[in-house]
Amino acid sequence: MGNSAGATIAYYAGLRAAAEVEDLEPLQIRGLILRQAFFGGIQRTGSELRLANDPVIPLCVIDLLWELALPIGADRDHEYANPTAGNGSKTLDKMGALGWRVMVSGCKGDPLVDREIAEAKLMTERGVQVVCDIEEEGHHEIEYAQPSKAKELTGVIKDFISQ
């Protein structure tokens, strides 16, 4: 599980674990929880354009963070930033075959939400069981600012884990 950049790390750690699952025994991973994953890409999404001047995480900050994080010369369609580039990782098929469940959680007031939804769609197409929790209201990392949202998120996560 991870939130924001932590969700991105959890996603890529999950891909690596799925690829090497035999080497992890007796550990059994059953899925991932991705909360407001920090994904990027060259082509702007509707939510990025609509929320370009977001007070929590404006587009200029998103772009700067990717510029600092990616290898020199790489753009935001690099595999580390854009998990949907090139139809995604081949390991998604293995995640699906392993029966992993992935919860994708976010808010429509987050500039990154369209990328989260696109990744959820791609995972579903590749056979991964995806549960989407996309709230109509809220912003990036709202659960840190509003305790009631943190409590709601905790309930959603508990429900996901217990299923």
Results as ranks from 00 to 15, higher is better:
91 T>I: 08
163 Q>I: 08
77 D>C: 02
86 G>C: 05
98 L>Q: 10
119 E>T: 10
68 L>T: 15
149 K>A: 12
68 L>N: 14
82 N>V: 02
103 M>I: 07
20 E>Q: 14
84 T>V: 12
58 P>N: 02
141 E>L: 12
119 E>S: 12
155 G>N: 09
126 R>N: 07
131 V>R: 14
100 W>H: 10
73 G>P: 05
9 I>C: 10
15 L>F: 04
156 V>D: 11
13 A>E: 13
158 K>T: 00
142 I>K: 15
81 A>R: 06
151 K>P: 09
2 G>R: 06
109 G>Q: 11
141 E>T: 14
99 G>K: 08
55 P>L: 02
137 E>L: 12
1 M>T: 07
81 A>C: 03
106 G>N: 10
149 K>N: 11
137 E>P: 11
26 P>C: 06
53 N>Q: 04
100 W>F: 07
153 L>R: 15
34 L>G: 03
5 A>H: 14
154 T>Q: 07
81 A>V: 01
157 I>E: 06
6 G>W: 04
82 N>S: 01
54 D>T: 01
159 D>M: 08
116 E>I: 04
53 N>G: 01
133 D>A: 10
157 I>K: 01
140 H>R: 09
129 Q>P: 06
35 R>T: 12
81 A>K: 04
124 T>S: 13
113 V>S: 10
2 G>C: 01
30 R>G: 11
15 L>M: 13
40 G>K: 02
7 A>P: 10
44 R>L: 11
111 P>Y: 03
12 Y>G: 04
53 N>W: 05
159 D>Q: 13
8 T>V: 11
65 L>I: 15
8 T>N: 15
36 Q>C: 06
120 A>P: 03
131 V>M: 12
75 D>W: 00
53 N>E: 02
81 A>Q: 07
153 L>V: 05
109 G>S: 13
92 L>W: 09
82 N>W: 00
123 M>G: 07
38 F>G: 06
61 V>N: 08
107 C>S: 14
27 L>G: 10
130 V>A: 01
116 E>R: 12
66 W>L: 03
34 L>A: 04
37 A>P: 08
14 G>Y: 00
71 P>A: 00
115 R>A: 03
44 R>K: 15
92 L>M: 12
95 M>V: 07
108 K>R: 15
153 L>P: 04
9 I>D: 14
107 C>D: 14
47 S>R: 00
40 G>Y: 06
108 K>N: 14
123 M>V: 03
109 G>C: 13
80 Y>E: 13
123 M>A: 07
66 W>R: 04
56 V>S: 00
144 Y>L: 14
95 M>N: 05
81 A>G: 04
103 M>A: 09
33 I>G: 07
28 Q>E: 15
156 V>C: 06
144 Y>R: 15
102 V>G: 01
25 E>K: 15
99 G>A: 04
54 D>K: 08
146 Q>N: 12
64 L>I: 07
163 Q>P: 06
26 P>I: 05
14 G>Q: 08
125 E>F: 02
142 I>C: 12
